[in-house]
Amino acid sequence: MDDIITMAERPREFICIVCPVGCPLKVDGDGDNIVVTGNACPRGDAYGRQEFLRPTRVVTSSVSVLGADSPLVSVKTKGDIDKARIPAALAEIRALTVRAPVGIGQIIAPDLAGTGVPLVATSAAARV
């Protein structure tokens, strides 16, 4: 996972994901002076800025569950985390183990990898 790199080259290029057109965006600048080009609409501008300044993602995975009718319970970060924190988040997820029963929405880790974002269960695990 160490090879997940936030590319530092400039200008940065993205495919806009806002709609199916998929405009190729170029973003450059710093501070208040960010310039997005290649977008066909204002939503593309906003997306480009976000990806450039502070890309964030929801992480979905699964954790070990004991005493259940399945080996895993699926989980997600309850909100976006910084993209750069994904490797640390995944490492913590891998190390977690919970005990059945688990309900959907149950907090599995209150502050995942220091992101301030909790990890919650997205599937239930009944006790057997």
């Binding site: 090879d3 997940i4 790199i5 993205f14 495919i15 806009c16 994901i17 199916p20 998929g22 993602r57 993209k83």
Partner: peptide, 14 residues
């Protein structure tokens, strides 16, 4: 596939 998936599942990881 969706552009979002190309971006977040492939490009994010090279």
């Amino acid at each position: 596939g969706l552009n979002r998936n190309i971006s977040q599942c492939l490009r994010d990881y090279g």
